[in-house]
Amino acid sequence: MKHSIRISDISQWLPAITKIITADFSANDEVQIDFKEIPYEQFTPIHISSIACVKCFLEKRGIKCSCQHVPRPTLSISKGFNLWQLDKAYLETYSHNICRILKQSFYPDKDLSAVKGCLNEALYNVFDHAEAKDIAFICLSLDPITDRLCVAVCDLGLGIAKKIRSHFPEILNDTKAVAMAVENSFTTKSRKHNRGYGLDNILSCCNDDDTFKIISNGASYIAVNDKISTFALDYDFPGTLLYFEISIYMLPEDEDIFEEI
């Protein structure tokens, strides 16, 4: 059976894709998602990484999925959207290569440790906590005019909120759980090496006007312009979407220093 779905309002993107993920499709069905009415410039890494997850999710269930009028991922970082399906074997290689390209092509004098560190924290977060069964993508794009790198990591795993609440049943809602996930030292200790500094570390690399956002299960957490807002969603996103921006022009010049513990 063929299903045609049209997504025309970008503000309804996540509720719309949540509906697709939770819909009762059968193997051998065909799902066609059309984004014709959404202008190209409205797409961000959030949209590309999440739709990649949806396509992967459906195809793993034997459901054919095609997406029309959506920007095609490219290998370039500055012209379009660089998309990668997470693979633990190449995790460090990925972050290393992204930083190498940024350094060689755009910012030879910048210390890009923050970029690499944040990418590593975000990617390890998925492998350590999400139980996403390979349905996880990272998408990034660089705006060379504003010198801002935009990164979205989306997985259709357990979701941060669910994971935290299963560990700490005393946390009664997803909003509180997602807010706690960002707190320094808060961890479910999924792996021995987890101590709960990862998300806080990413957040601290974002400048005031950079956006840091988590959407997970029934909650959203947004930090921008020195303001943090958390709120309950009227849909249940089946996984986690982490989005952050790094203003590269604010990063320090690359120089070696001597640091004593």
């Binding site: 210390d111 923050a114 030292s185 070696d256 001597f258």
Partner: peptide
Amino acid sequence: IKGKICFKHMGKTDAETLRKYISH
């Protein structure tokens, strides 16, 4: 370990991460 371990040729951002990490 205080005063015993030093990092040489460390990036500024990494040094900041390390300082913050230890303090927390």
